[in-house]
């Protein structure tokens, strides 16, 4: 458990890249920060819709959310 989670008390379970994660209630921006994920080279899909980078800071994750975080890798 991270400190954020113990402080807020309220926890939610979301699916991130296919894996269930129990986290404190927070924005997408804060979640990316908490997992040390640089928002620049990535794209985020929330419940099958693209989330623009400008929306990260105002989008609060809620119970059952499906989050996909992708980036580019080598491919042909």
């Amino acid at each position: 458990m991270n400190s954020e989670l113990t402080r807020s008390g309220e926890t939610i379970t979301i699916t991130v890249n296919g894996e269930a994660k129990t986290i404190a209630c927070m924005t997408v921006k804060d979640y990316l920060h908490s997992i040390e994920c640089d928002p620049v080279p990535i794209a985020v899909e929330l419940n099958l819709s693209i989330l623009r980078k400008s929306e990260y800071q105002d989008t609060i994750l809620t119970e059952g959310d499906q989050l996909e975080i992708v980036w580019f890798v080598g491919g042909g």
């Binding site: 991130v16 890249n17 296919g18 997992i35 040390e36 994920c37 640089d38 080279p41 990535i42 794209a43 996909e68 975080i69 992708v70 980036w71 580019f72 890798v73 080598g74 491919g75 042909g76």
Partner: peptide, 20 residues
Amino acid sequence: VTVAVRRVNISDRNKESLLD
């Protein structure tokens, strides 16, 4: 140049980005 789109490995935080 072609590139693929894949999930970020969220437990491996030190991975370099292809775009670097």
